[in-house]
Write a protein that binds this DNA or RNA. Structure first.
Lengths: 180, 180
DNA sequence: ACCTGAACACCGTTCAAGT
DNA sequence: ACCTGAACACCGTTCAAGT
């Protein structure tokens, strides 16, 4: 379908705002992202931003969408199940503040809740793949959920890498059934 | 030690502010607690509040201290290990938003981090007591940590009571060793 | 010691007015 | 369609000035 020139220009502007929003969010989560800041940095009036994004929350969620898309775009790890999961938790830890902010926002903002549900599904798919060879089929779905919930719990702790790994390894051993 | 009249009056004022802060925090977490709101409701100038609490974060943490003290003051459950843990998660869920806000604040505010560490310790003590009869001593400490981390992960999900219990039960069965 | 009023430097959002 | 400037209703914090 052929695009009108006006549509292209609009998309460029959206792109410009979104890119800057991603930069701010990466730097300091939801707190650092303010409509005022975006407008000032881009040389716009504050109100102009609202022509492209209906609210701060919407802009944040749009930026999150980008951040998490890039996170999932990375190459899948090649280790065993535990190696892959550790790698996933590492990736998630890299956007820890953003994830927790999105989680918090999802309590009041539908867009945030929708994106979060989507992210959950993608993690669940990855976990299912990683764990399918090791876990009995009838336990698989519940183990997947449990691992994800535990990983989210770990995230909130903001532990040093090493300690985080210790907890993760222990929980995985228990959840995957530690008869080896 | 005998108290001076001035000291008593000061404590009464602190008490008044703190009580109102607790009310606001209970109603809507960190977001709902604003210095302006406290001042207006109590008929003070905004700046006056700073005579008793150095910042909004400090006032929030002081209010949290109250909320969690009351939470721990409740009667200990009488069920088995799993019953007691379920009961604890229930209590924690009752102050879910406050707990998550405190967790978030603990990333930047020392007072918050200190209180959170204290709360962790109290939960760990409770869990240790509940699990000591069921879990081998050398695994106990790590199981305690894992259960608490899992519970925190559950908290962030804001699931309906029933679904939360399902996940908790599954994780506990795995972590406590499900050979029964 | 305690409190006020004003100020500073921010917010998100709305809206009439311009181009 | 896109953008501005001003306005509204908030924030947290500081500080000189009062009692």
């Amino acid at each position: 379908m052929p695009r009108k020139r006006a549509e292209l220009e609009r998309e460029e502007k959206v792109e410009e705002i979104l890119e800057h929003a991603v930069r701010l969010v990466r730097a300091g989560g939801y707190e650092e992202l303010s409509i005022n800041r975006v407008a000032k940095d881009l040389g716009l009036a504050r109100a102009a931003v609202y022509w492209y994004f209906p609210s701060r929350a919407d802009l944040f969620v749009a930026a999150c969408e980008r951040v998490f898309a890039e996170m999932f775009a990375g190459p899948p790890s090649d280790g065993g199940a535990i190696g892959r999961i550790r790698w996933g938790v590492d990736r998630l830890d890299g956007v820890c503040e953003i994830y927790l902010a999105l989680q918090q926002l999802s309590a009041t903002e539908q867009v945030a809740a929708t994106l979060l549900a989507d992210i959950h599904q993608r993690f669940q798919r990855g976990l299912r793949e990683a764990l399918a060879p090791t876990v009995e089929p009838e336990r698989l779905e519940r183990v997947v959920d449990a691992v994800l919930i535990f990983a989210e719990g770990l995230l909130g702790r903001r532990l040093p890498h090493e300690e985080r790994d210790r907890h993760l390894e222990f929980a995985l051993a228990a959840l995957l059934g530690d008869e080896r």
